[in-house]
C-alpha cells in the first residue's frame, strides 16, 4: 500500500452524508464518554493512577470476553471485570507503590484470561478484536442505554464527592486530619473508576482506554492550574478526541481507535508546546 492508498483508506468523504446517520448512536455514546473521561481523568492524574487504570481495563476486557463467550451482554461483563479489579486494587493497594506492583501482577493475568475466553469463542471474529482495540460503529439502542446510564452514574457520583475527593487527592494528610474519610473515599473512587473504564472499553477498547481517561486531563493540566478551567478543558479535549475521531473514522475504512488516539495525542503535544512557550523556566529543572 502506498501513501495515496493510505489516504484513500483514511480519509474518503464520498459517501459521508449517507454514512452519518448510521453512527448516530455511536456519537451519542462517544459524547457521553467524553464527559466521563474528561472529568475522571482529573482525579486519575491527581492520584497518580494511570497504571492502575490500565490494569482495571485488562480485567474488564477479560470480563467482556467471558460475557461474549457465554453469550450475555458484553457491557455487563466488562462492568463486572472492572469492579473486581478495582476492588482488589482498592483493598490491597492503598499505597501507590503497592498498587503499582499489584497492578503489574493483575494485568497480564487479566489479559491472558481474556485471550483464553476469546479463543474459545466461536462467533464473529470482528467482535474479538473490537474488545481490545475498540469498535463502536454499531452501538445498538440497548447498549447505548446501558452506556448512558453508566456514564450518568459516574458523573453524578463524581459531582457528589468532588470537593472531599479533591482534598483527599491533593493533600491526604490534612484532609484526613480535617475529618475526610480518605480510605472510604478511595474505595468509592475505585468503584466509580471501574464503571468509567467499562464504558470507555466499549468505545476505544481495553488497550487504549488511557487515550480518553488520561491524555485529555494531562493535556489540560499542562496549560492551566485553575481547577475549574482545567476541568472544562479536559472535558473539551476528550470530546474533541472521541467525537472528532468517530466523525473522521466515518470517512475511511479504518477502525475508530487510531483517529481517537491520534487526536488525543496531538492535543497533548499542542498543550505541552503552549506550556513550553509560556514558562520555559519550568522545563529547565
Amino acid at each position: 500500500m502506498d501513501f495515496a492508498d493510505f489516504i484513500e483508506k483514511a480519509f474518503n468523504f464520498e459517501d459521508y452524508a449517507l454514512l452519518l446517520p448510521l453512527v448516530g448512536n455511536s456519537l451519542v455514546a462517544g459524547a457521553a464518554l467524553g464527559i466521563v473521561g474528561g472529568l475522571i481523568g482529573i482525579f486519575i492524574m491527581m492520584r497518580d493512577m494511570a497504571f492502575a487504570v490500565h490494569g482495571i481495563a485488562e480485567l474488564s476486557f477479560a470480563g467482556a470476553a467471558f460475557a461474549l463467550l457465554i453469550g450475555v451482554d458484553v457491557v455487563t461483563g466488562s462492568v463486572f471485570g472492572s469492579l473486581i479489579a478495582a476492588l482488589i486494587l482498592g483493598v490491597l493497594g492503598t499505597r501507590a507503590r503497592d498498587r503499582n506492583s499489584i497492578t503489574g501482577v493483575l494485568m497480564p493475568f487479566g489479559l491472558g484470561l481474556g485471550i483464553l475466553f476469546l479463543s474459545l469463542y466461536e462467533g464473529r471474529s470482528a467482535n474479538k478484536f473490537g474488545l481490545l482495540t475498540g469498535q463502536i460503529v454499531a452501538v445498538d439502542d440497548v447498549q447505548l442505554g446501558g452506556m448512558l446510564m453508566l456514564s450518568a452514574v459516574v458523573v453524578l457520583a463524581l459531582a457528589l464527592i468532588w470537593r472531599p475527593l479533591t482534598f483527599a487527592s491533593a493533600d491526604p494528610v490534612v484532609a484526613n486530619a480535617r475529618g475526610v474519610r480518605t480510605a472510604g473515599l478511595s474505595i468509592i473512587f475505585m468503584m466509580v473508576l471501574a464503571l468509567a473504564v467499562a464504558v470507555t472499553i466499549q468505545v476505544v477498547g481495553a488497550l487504549l482506554v488511557l487515550a480518553l481517561l488520561i491524555t485529555p486531563a494531562a493535556a489540560a493540566m499542562r496549560v492551566s492550574s485553575n481547577p475549574v478551567l482545567t476541568v472544562i478543558l479536559s472535558v473539551l479535549f476528550a470530546e474533541l478526541a472521541v467525537v472528532g475521531g468517530i466523525l473522521l473514522a466515518l470517512a475511511g475504512s479504518l477502525p475508530i481507535s487510531p483517529y481517537v488516539t491520534t487526536i488525543s495525542f496531538v492535543i497533548y503535544l499542542v498543550c505541552r508546546g503552549i506550556e513550553a512557550v509560556r514558562s520555559p523556566r519550568r522545563h529547565q529543572v
Binding site: I42, M45, M46, D48, A159, L160, I161, W162, R163, P164, T166, F167, S169, A170, D171, V174, A175, R178, G179, V180, A218, A220, M221, S224, S225, N226, P227, T230
Partner: peptide, 21 residues
C-alpha cells in the same frame, strides 16, 4: 499533576470536607 492554585489549596481548608461541588 495537582491542578490547584495557592488560593484553591487554602479554600480546601474552608470547605474541603463538605460533599458536592
Amino acid at each position: 499533576n495537582v491542578p490547584l492554585r495557592a488560593r484553591d489549596l487554602v479554600a480546601l481548608g474552608i470547605d474541603g470536607t463538605r460533599p458536592g461541588i
